[in-house]
Design a protein around this nucleic acid. Structure first.
Lengths: 212, 212
DNA sequence: GGCAATACTAGAACACGTTCCTGTTACCGG
DNA sequence: CCGGTAACAGGAACGTGTTCTAGTATTGCC
């Protein structure tokens, strides 16, 4: 229950690692179950946020036994982090479709992060559910969370160097921005700032940190 | 259970707001109970972290009924956030005893934040418990969390302007540093980085952000 | 001192994440 | 086709945060 280690991806669970392999070896019925589970999760999270994603309810809506749900996703956290991974993946491909506009580095980063932030805020309850899961993630989901962070980092770094010219510390700056981004989401979830403040604060950080 | 609002500090709970008043009106027996509860909480958290702080166990060790515990602290989150508030308060007075040494703004901030970080890491499990609570805080503890943030912000701002000369954006920069500080703690709790990396990353952020 | 209101105790009860058990079904090598 | 193994269904059971109830003690007020 604590943040203790875990066997390095035993052959037991067909899921747990979204990254790659082992998903190939699934039968089509299994792929369908996994998809139904994620669909149900997104539906419940969109409607009622983190608390509304109840494992029994997810299982029922997915037409899957509770034990099976746990076989595919060993915890509620895994389930929601997986949802976030696929969500962020979609976001990344959409945002990266074209080069971010803007003459300065700050402008381009602003463009990308504002789009991302607004995209998430369009479904506040879903975002609440996913961000809460990211916060609560322990070592057993570290790999997935790192993957999500990596995806967002790529987005930011690419925006910073518009065409070429990589600037020193780009990666570190992206990491800081992501920390701010994340911390501001938490402040919003914690009722300390409201949705509009989230972007205002992130933008302020960009202006202060991303220099040309 | 969700982040919905709540009555603006009803007369029901003698605690909930650490800030001020209402604590005055406590009898000495009540002050003693509150102290016992916080002591038990710190002991359990120090020994076993967030999961070890079990409400029944806290009640038992405090020699208080479970219902009474909930009267003083309406949730586990409130309990641990209160613990963190008093912990940070102690930290602040200790650190602010003397002016931070260092010739540059960055050096002074580094000094203060390193001391704070190391101080917390001396009790990793306690820190884990408190940080987890801060993350999970919903609107009902927003005021206390804001207070904690304010305390840390003061610490940082004061370090930045060593003697006089307040520099533009000091407060905003302090906020960013605190976001980084917090996000790095979460990364550590999530098993994505280890304890030594926490300070390394924070220091890197200071170097990049706090300019002279 | 007496009385009403409030605080406290002890413990049952509830909700939801998680685990476990029992029986059934689907797949796979011979 | 057959037997065995892994996956699944259905559902009971457990742990812990939280709530609720009934009875007892304390406190504040006249």
């Amino acid at each position: 229950m604590t943040s203790t280690a875990q066997p390095p991806v035993g052959t037991a669970h067909p899921a747990a690692d979204i990254s790659s392999a082992a998903l190939e070896s699934e039968t089509s019925a299994q792929r369908a179950r996994r998809a139904r589970i994620l669909t149900a999760t997104l539906a419940l999270a969109s409607r009622g946020g983190y608390d509304a994603v109840q494992m029994r309810e997810v299982a029922e809506r997915s037409e899957v036994a509770l034990g099976t749900l746990y076989r595919y996703f060993p915890s509620k956290i895994h389930l929601l982090v997986s949802a976030m991974a696929s969500e962020v993946e979609g976001l990344a491909t959409r945002v990266q479709k074209r080069q971010a506009p803007g003459g300065t580095r700050a402008e381009r980063v602003s463009f990308v992060l504002e789009r991302s932030t607004r995209s998430l805020q369009r479904e506040p309850l879903l975002t609440e559910a996913m961000v809460r899961a990211m916060m609560a993630a322990d070592a057993s989901v570290a790999a997935q969370v790192t993957g999500i962070r990596q995806g967002m980092s790529d987005l930011i770094v690419q925006a910073m160097r518009g065409g070429g010219d990589p600037v020193e510390h780009d990666v570190e700056i992206a990491a800081i921005l992501q920390d701010v981004w994340f911390a501001r989401q938490i402040a919003w979830l914690g009722g300390r700032i409201d949705a509009t403040d989230v972007w205002r604060d992130i933008h302020q950080a960009i202006v202060l940190i991303v220099l040309d």
